[in-house]
C-alpha cells in the first residue's frame, strides 16, 4: 500500500513537480530567516524523501559536494559583525542546504521528458517575443543529458595529459593553471559532439518549425492537489510566523 503511495508521489504531474521545486526554493530563500525554521524545513524535506522513495542517507552524504561552499559562506556570514555570529551562519547554511536538497530531489524524481514538458510550459510566454520555448527547453534537457558524457571526456583528456607528463594531480593553486591546456581539447570535443548531435537530430526529423508531440500523457490527480494543498498550508504558516 505504502509502495503504491510512494509511486504516486514520485509520478506527480511534471508541472506540479516543477512548481513545487520553485516554491520550496523560494521558501528557503525568503522565509527561512531563523535557523530553527531552516532546520524544521530541512527535516521536512528529508521526511518527504520517504514518500518519493529516495534514500535519505545518500541525500545527506551528497552534501559533501557543497561542503567547501558551506564552510566559506558560514565564515563570511559569521564574521559579518564584530564577533562570530553563529545564528547568522547557521541560518544561511540551512537555507543553502535546503535549496540543494530540493534541487537534487527534483532532478532525481523527474525524467527528461518531464523536465522538457515543464520547461516548455515555463518558457511559453517567451513566444510573444519570437523565442521558441521548445527549442530552449530541449537545449537545457540535452545539456543535462550530456553532463556525464563531458565528465568522462574531461577525465579521459586529463589522463592523456598526465600520461604525457602534465602535473595535474597536485592540490596547489598552480595545478589550477596547469588545467588550462585541457580547455582547448575539451572545447573542441564539445563543438564536434554538438555538430554530430545536431546532424543526428535533424536526420531523425527534428525541426524547430514543426510542432512536436509527447509520447507520455500527464494528468492532474488527487496526489497533485494534495501536495499543492500541503505546500499552501506551509506557506501560510511560515507567513504567519514571519
Amino acid at each position: 500500500m505504502f509502495n503504491k503511495v510512494k509511486l504516486k508521489f514520485r509520478n506527480l504531474n511534471p508541472i506540479t513537480k516543477g512548481f513545487l521545486c520553485v516554491i520550496y526554493i523560494l521558501i528557503f530563500s525568503f522565509f527561512c530567516k531563523s535557523w530553527q525554521i531552516g532546520l524544521v524545513m530541512n527535516l521536512f524535506v528529508l521526511l518527504s524523501c520517504l514518500f518519493i522513495d529516495e534514500d535519505v542517507i545518500q541525500l545527506i552524504i551528497s552534501l559533501k559536494k557543497i561542503l567547501l561552499l558551506l564552510i566559506i559562506v558560514a565564515i563570511f556570514q559569521g564574521f559579518s559583525g564584530n564577533e562570530f555570529n553563529y545564528v547568522n551562519a547557521l541560518s544561511t547554511i540551512f537555507r543553502i542546504i535546503g535549496v540543494f536538497f530540493v534541487a537534487t530531489l527534483y532532478t532525481k524524481v523527474s525524467t527528461q521528458n518531464e523536465l522538457l514538458y515543464f520547461w516548455e510550459k515555463c518558457f511559453k510566454p517567451l513566444k510573444l517575443f519570437g523565442v521558441s520555448s521548445s527549442e530552449y527547453a530541449l537545449t537545457m534537457v540535452i545539456a543535462i543529458r550530456f553532463l556525464p558524457v563531458f565528465m568522462d571526456e574531461i577525465e579521459r583528456i586529463k589522463i592523456a595529459q598526465i600520461a604525457r607528463g602534465a602535473k595535474l594531480k597536485t592540490n596547489s593553486i598552480v595545478s589550477a593553471i596547469n588545467f588550462m591546456p585541457l580547455l582547448i581539447p575539451i572545447l573542441t570535443q564539445a563543438i564536434m559532439r554538438s555538430e554530430e548531435l545536431a546532424d543526428a537530430m535533424e536526420v531523425r526529423g527534428y525541426s524547430t518549425e514543426r510542432p512536436r508531440s509527447l509520447y507520455k500523457k500527464y494528468s492532474f490527480g488527487k496526489y497533485d492537489f494534495l501536495t499543492i494543498f500541503f505546500t499552501t498550508i506551509i506557506i501560510v504558516v511560515l507567513a504567519y510566523i514571519k
Binding site: 537530430m201 526529423g205 527534428y206 525541426s207 514543426r210
Partner: peptide, 27 residues
C-alpha cells in the same frame, strides 16, 4: 554517444517519433 538524445531507452526511441507529431498511442 553523440547521437543518443534521450536519457532512457524509451525516451530516445520516442524522440524521432515525437518530431513527426504522432499521437501518444502511435508512438
Amino acid at each position: 554517444d553523440n547521437q543518443i538524445v534521450g536519457t532512457t531507452i524509451g525516451d530516445d526511441i520516442a524522440f524521432g517519433l515525437e518530431n513527426f507529431n504522432l499521437s501518444s498511442d502511435e508512438i
